[in-house]
């Protein structure tokens, strides 16, 4: 069964900017996945979407399942997103499993 969630309605704001909001959205999606639903995530109506929000709401989902399986079960409805916002979400998804410490990053 497909379940559509509207991010703006969950966070009750057009600004998806903080980690608390990210966790709220993550928990809603996680719950739907737990019911074996396919989740359509609707980002419409958001004026600002930060990397912090996306890492917590979407990126963290990749700790639940393998990317291939997750990509089948979580669909991003991107019609209302700008090209830049789509890129931002895409990069968070692609790099969700990559963790590199500050020490390692600062070596270069």
């Amino acid at each position: 069964m497909n379940k559509k969630i509207i991010v703006k309605d969950i966070i009750e704001s057009p600004l998806a900017v903080n980690t608390k909001q990210g966790k709220e959205v993550f928990e809603v999606i996680e719950k739907e996945l737990g019911k074996q639903n396919v989740v359509d995530v609707d980002f419409s109506g958001l004026t600002t979407i930060t990397t912090a929000f996306l890492n917590l709401s979407i990126g963290k989902l990749y700790s639940l399942d393998e990317p291939r399986e997750l990509n089948k079960r979580v669909k991003i409805l991107s019609d209302s997103l700008t090209v830049f916002q789509k890129q931002k979400i895409q990069r968070v998804m692609e790099n969700a499993k990559i963790k590199i410490s500050d020490e390692e990053l600062n070596e270069g």
């Binding site: 900017v17 903080n18 980690t19 930060t50 990397t51 996306l54 890492n55 990126g59 790099n95 590199i100």
Partner: peptide
């Protein structure tokens, strides 16, 4: 910490402070 999708994961909390103060 705010924008880099790799290093943001190491953010000790600047994103929330900056965007909440914005």
């Amino acid at each position: 910490y705010l924008l880099d999708d790799i290093q943001q994961k190491n953010d000790p909390g600047y994103s929330d402070i900056i965007y909440e103060s914005n």
